[in-house]
Nucleic acid binder design. Structure first.
Lengths: 208, 208
DNA sequence: GTCTATAAGGAGATAGAC
DNA sequence: GTCTATCTCCTTATAGAC
């Protein structure tokens, strides 16, 4: 059952607003205004706000994992450590620049509402792209460790390092802009400098 | 004007609940129940929920900066790179273990409500402990760089690296526990292993 | 399918008794 | 100072006209 245009419009509007203002900060009336219809129509198509949120959240997770999996399909078998870090971090930054709120959104909704974690865990555990992406990734790290091209490290630990550094950059971006009163250009420069610094950190950690 | 006992009780209850469930997720009725009084009393002492939140938030920031400043008063002038990283990261972890929700709380409330950032910026900019802590910290890094004891690095970049890695660990902790279904003991082990890994990362990055 | 109207409940804030 | 009662507004969700 292909989703109709109006269903897609509602989903897109909900996605935009949930990402911006979170679940609690977005009312179904807000979503209706964004779509250009009345509030009852939101409920006609998605019944409850919770259900609509679930659809949005799962789609975000799915799309993200699919993208992550995709970059690992590039021929990474024979690249050097420096090349590997460059490819992964450049790609990661480019992806997040399109959705700068994504780290915040995921952190917020996953931490704030423990009641929703059950639903999320089920979908997360059985998500095919997640398994696939992690296995591809871990295989690369293990191979390079065995070949002596990088220092000994647990793939999971390296993953948390990378995600922390990159997500931390995007989480700190609005604070950098607001608290330190930086312009849009300066924020661009900040992102670029963080990108290069993160590469240095990862290469230092991995270089034998 | 010393705050009375009831005022302190309300503040403590509000702090607990805001840290747990965020501003939007906490009602003044919740706070009253936690205190053991009626909801009107909250408003009698603090007028609005916003005002109460402001008090809580500023106190959190102030306490945190004060603690950070304190550790930098230790005699760090003659320690090695490894010792310095050990002291700072151990202290940082011990502090956050007492308030594991703090990173999430700050991220959430700072990002979610742009209207509040103005108030926060003012307090943040003129906070004496912040200036003090950052200056002490930057002086140490610059001295060690000049002495050739660590590699060239911008103090601010190193700060963001450190905060990202440590905050990322605490933000990921409930996800680690929930999504991967880890017990409390395993979460303790996770924290310890993250602590040691973060030290390795920072030392690798800084070692000449 | 899409609308208006409205029900039902919860929120923050205040009035006024004690 | 502390309580109960209540006002007003906003939310989600549904009923029913078209």
């Amino acid at each position: 059952m292909e989703p109709t245009k109006i269903e897609q419009d509602i989903l897109a509007a909900a996605q935009k607003l949930f990402l911006e203002k979170g679940f609690a900060g977005t009312s179904t009336t807000d979503i209706a205004n964004e779509v250009g219809c009345n509030q009852a129509l939101i409920h006609y198509y998605y019944r409850t706000k919770d259900n609509l949120f679930e659809k949005v959240f799962l789609q975000e997770i799915n799309d993200t994992l699919k993208m992550i999996s995709k970059v690992l399909d590039a021929p990474l078998q024979n690249v050097s450590l420096t090349e590997l870090v460059n490819i992964v971090i450049d790609y990661y930054f480019a992806t997040l620049k399109q959705r700068p709120n994504l780290p915040f959104f995921i952190v917020q909704e996953l931490l704030l509402n423990p009641g929703r974690r059950e639903m999320i865990r089920e979908q997360f555990i059985r998500n095919e792209y997640r398994q696939e992406a992690y296995n591809k990734y871990a295989a690369i790290i293990r191979r390079m460790t065995a070949a002596g091209e990088i220092r000994q490290i647990e793939p999971f630990a390296l993953l948390i390092n990378t995600v922390s550094l990159v997500a931390g950059t995007f989480l700190s971006l609005p604070l950098y802009g607001d608290l330190l009163e930086k312009s849009g250009e300066e924020q661009e420069t900040y992102l670029d400098s963080r990108k290069e610094e993160i590469k240095r950190v990862l290469i230092s950690r991995l270089q034998p």
